[in-house]
Design a protein around this nucleic acid. Structure first.
Length: 433
RNA sequence: GUGGCCGUAGCUCAGUUGGUUAGAGCGCCAGGUUGUGGCCCUGGAGGUCGGGGGUUCGAGUCCCCUCGGUCACCCCA
């Protein structure tokens, strides 16, 4: 096969799916607008250090999944594997007034073996809020994501919540856990027997039965939290309760990115039976700005995958995401220029309009009009031209109501009628109402 | 990175122990209607059977390699 295909793990979104993709994005835009977040656009590639130091040297994403390349100037760059590190880098560079609350849509690249709901390029919608350590901000950000999912009509969701502690209690817990694991290291699975000391937290969500057994009895982070972290977590959960957002404390929620402190959360779609049912997640990253060379600045945010959302909507059979079908289809038997002008007039008036090209037969144009999903055809041919009129024809089963003369041959209740050329807009908008 | 399953028209698939010019449905295009879509009828276009090599008189069918898809592990959106 000599024709090119999209690279492995990537895909083209078009047709019906394109309409749903656009609907998801626009609904996110509406939601963040409701919350007063501003759009931030940052580059799709960054100095590789942004991710190494931001996401974490030890993380799976950085160690094995990054697309790293050298440009012609010898700079070492990486395609962004996620959104947060870039946004925080932009914050450090521009220092916008705090609190800075923003949102984005970005492709994300990870070199992984593709499978259901997982691609080498996927798309994330995200929001970040920097400059406040107030737990009410955590509640707002999680609430924003919940509001968005609700706006899409998603119902079968589970919110998992945890706390990663902070600079005071996390290192102590890590040491405590490492000590515990050492005492039972012989019982761990082959992989973790050798690597538990490098990142003890990973053992907690290892799926191997032997590790699970050891993890059951391990000291819990929730019990090791310092006072301030415990208070913070309590304020977050009570805030979610107050907003009526159900949640579940998940001790095994150890998110893969190293920058998280305190609150971490993840929404899973229970309607999805595939292995990848995580819709979106995030957390607080109070040390991230500093790690990227900026002033200490607390922050919290999330990313959510558009492809996963689309899968979840499909699983919950949410058909009504609003497709981009036009309202009017102009049929032109005069060679095509008349359609250009009529479509322009309708579009200027805010009526979404499409038309045919290549001067096809009336039959062919109407067939195309039917398929387009438009409600109404506006037909111009020699007869209309001679009489200064246009013909409005219903493309549905209903008849053409409103102003204008019913087609003499069809009588009242006809599915098409003639109106004066100058009455086009009034007749069309009357009909579409 | 590891493993299971699968690659025949745009899509979903059929193709008998290897045997003539590779089929169907849907979709697309045209006609049946001197200006009327949806339903129906008729016709048409569209395939180097993923690619390469091998076995054979002969390969969509058998063997090897390779590329791709899919699902799972790992990890994550």
């Amino acid at each position: 096969m000599s024709a090119f295909k999209a690279p492995i793990g990537t895909r083209d979104v078009l047709g019906e799916e394109g309409a749903r993709f656009a609907a998801v994005v626009s609904r996110f835009g509406r939601t963040v607008g409701l919350f007063g977040y501003e759009l931030v656009v940052s580059p799709m590639f960054e100095d590789v250090g942004v991710f190494r130091r931001g996401v974490g040297e030890e993380s799976e994403v950085v160690t094995k999944e990054m697309y790293v390349f050298e440009d012609k100037g010898g700079r070492s760059l990486a395609l962004r594997p996620e959104g947060t590190a870039s946004v925080v880098r932009a914050y450090v560079q521009h220092r916008p007034p705090l609190p800075w609350r923003c949102w984005y849509l970005t492709p994300a690249f990870r070199y992984e073996h593709p499978q259901a709901g997982r691609y080498r390029q996927h798309h994330q919608l995200g929001a970040e809020a920097l400059g406040s350590a107030d737990p009410e901000l955590d509640v707002e950000v999680i609430g924003l994501l919940a509001t968005f999912y609700r706006a899409l009509g998603l119902r079968r969701l589970e919110l998992k919540l945890s706390s990663m502690g902070d600079g005071a209690c996390m290192p102590a817990y890590r040491a405590l856990l490492a000590g515990y694991l050492e005492s039972r290291s012989a019982e761990l699975c082959a992989e973790h027997r050798l690597r538990y000391s490098r990142n003890p937290l990973r053992v907690l969500d290892c799926k191997k039965p032997e590790c699970r057994l050891v993890a059951e009895a391990a000291p819990r982070l929730a019990d090791a939290l310092c006072g301030p972290c415990r208070d913070h977590f309590g304020r977050v959960t009570s805030g979610l309760d107050a907003l009526g957002i159900p949640w579940r404390h998940d001790h095994t929620l150890v998110r893969g990115l190293d920058y998280y402190t305190r609150t971490t959360f993840e929404f899973a779609a229970t309607a999805l039976d595939s292995a990848q049912n995580g819709l979106g997640g995030g957390g607080r990253y109070d040390g991230l700005a500093e790690a990227l060379g900026g002033p200490p600045t607390p922050g919290i945010g999330f990313g959510t995958g558009v492809e996963r959302i689309l899968l979840a909507c499909e699983a919950e059979e949410l058909a009504d995401l609003g497709t981009g079908v036009p309202q009017v289809f102009v049929v032109d038997l005069l060679g095509g220029r008349a359609a250009t002008l009529l479509a322009d007039e309708l579009r200027r008036a805010g009526v979404s309009t499409t038309r045919a090209f290549d001067d096809r037969s009336l039959k062919a144009q109407l067939r195309q009009a039917d398929r387009s999903g438009a409600r109404l055809a506006v037909i111009v041919g020699p007869d209309e031209e001679a009489t200064g009129t246009v013909t409005l024809r219903s493309l549905r089963r209903d008849s053409v109501a409103g102003p204008g003369e019913a087609d003499a041959a069809e009588g009242p209740g006809a599915e098409q009628r003639r109106v004066g050329r100058q009455d086009l807009l009034a007749a069309v908008s009357g009909w579409l109402r």
